[in-house]
């Protein structure tokens, strides 16, 4: 075949035209691949660098301890939004984590059949539903029945977004637990439910928690489903039935405002949001790794 010959001849500097063209194409495509990597990494670096630059520069004590000042007045902070976000996320986790883990257990332990496949597919489909649509549904279910915006509505919206992710990762993690471990437990006469909770789930704890944190991190920055559920609030609120401020909402409002001071605070808010997400995820993973033997 001519190809073999040309490659060999490339070493002896008698390169026929066809081989040269192919080698140039090869180099060009390699260069193109490297170029795509640079093009993809550039915005990432730009976003992080700019976020840290503007965020750290804008951060101050007032931002972390005060509530927003009236429109046009400089100063103030997002303390209520930081706490409000934590509050809504706690509500979402209280609703979403048990249901998600439970559904995951069902799929892994009882769901190796057609019905399980239906639930599995439903979870995957739910994962792709736009967050704004979930906001509408939470509005229709909670806000319309309560007649006003509330932290609970925001929590429900975020919980709905957390459940499919938690379900699927929990299932995957439980399936990683060796069957022999379950059989050993059955062999000791431990009932199935005890086996699942104390042996299977416990072995997979670190993986399951990683899945929960993944879902948590995903919804922590969500803005769209909170727009017409938690709605936002200029003041402190820790009542489940009242509108509540949330960090992403506040960032959104401030980013679109015409005031420089609010822009500054939006950057500080974005920085705090990302730091909070990263540290909460890291802290939980660290605690879990120390507590168990890190099965996954």
């Amino acid at each position: 075949m001519p190809e073999t010959a040309t490659i060999k001849s490339s070493a002896t500097h008698t390169v026929p035209k066809i081989a040269l063209r192919r080698r140039i194409t090869d180099h060009v495509m390699t260069g193109a691949a490297v170029l795509t990597v640079i093009l993809v990494l550039a915005p990432l670096v730009a976003i992080f660098a700019y976020l840290i630059y503007r965020g750290v520069g804008s951060l101050n004590w007032a931002f972390l301890t005060q509530t927003p000042k009236p429109v046009g007045e400089a100063g103030g902070g997002m303390a209520n939004a930081i706490v409000g976000s934590a509050f809504i996320l706690a509500l979402a986790s209280i609703i979403g984590v048990p249901v998600g883990v439970g559904a995951g257990i069902y799929l892994a332990e009882f769901g190796r059949n057609r019905f399980g496949d239906i639930i599995r597919f439903t979870a995957d489909v739910l994962n792709g539903v736009p967050s704004i649509v979930i906001g509408i549904v939470a509005y229709a279910i909670v806000v319309l029945s309560q007649k006003h915006f509330s932290a609970l509505a925001g929590g429900v919206a975020l919980a709905i977004m957390m459940i499919p992710t938690i379900t699927r990762t929990t299932e995957e993690m439980l399936l990683l637990v060796p069957q022999a471990l379950r059989e050993a437990a059955y062999g000791l006469g431990i009932p199935r439910w005890r086996t699942t909770l104390s042996i299977t789930l416990r072995t997979a704890t670190s993986g399951v928690i990683t899945g929960i944190m993944l879902a948590f991190a995903r919804v922590a920055g969500e803005t769209a489903p909170l727009l017409f559920t938690a709605f936002g609030n200029q003041f402190w609120n820790l009542k489940v039935t009242e509108p509540t401020a949330a960090l992403p909402l506040q960032i959104y409002t401030y980013a679109l405002s015409p005031y420089d001071d609010w822009h500054r605070q939006a950057w500080a808010g974005a920085f705090v949001l990302i730091v909070l997400i990263v540290t909460s995820v890291a802290a939980v993973r660290f605690a879990v790794r120390r507590g168990t033997f890190g099965a996954a």
Binding site: A103, Y106, I119, P191, R192, T196
Partner: peptide, 26 residues
């Protein structure tokens, strides 16, 4: 454990059904 198992399985089934219910509700 049979009773326990039955309760456990139905509790987990409820969670699984919740996933289905969410989609239907939407």
């Amino acid at each position: 454990g049979e009773t326990g198992d039955r309760i456990f399985k139905s509790a987990m089934l409820v969670c699984g059904l919740a996933v289905l219910a969410i989609l239907v509700l939407i």
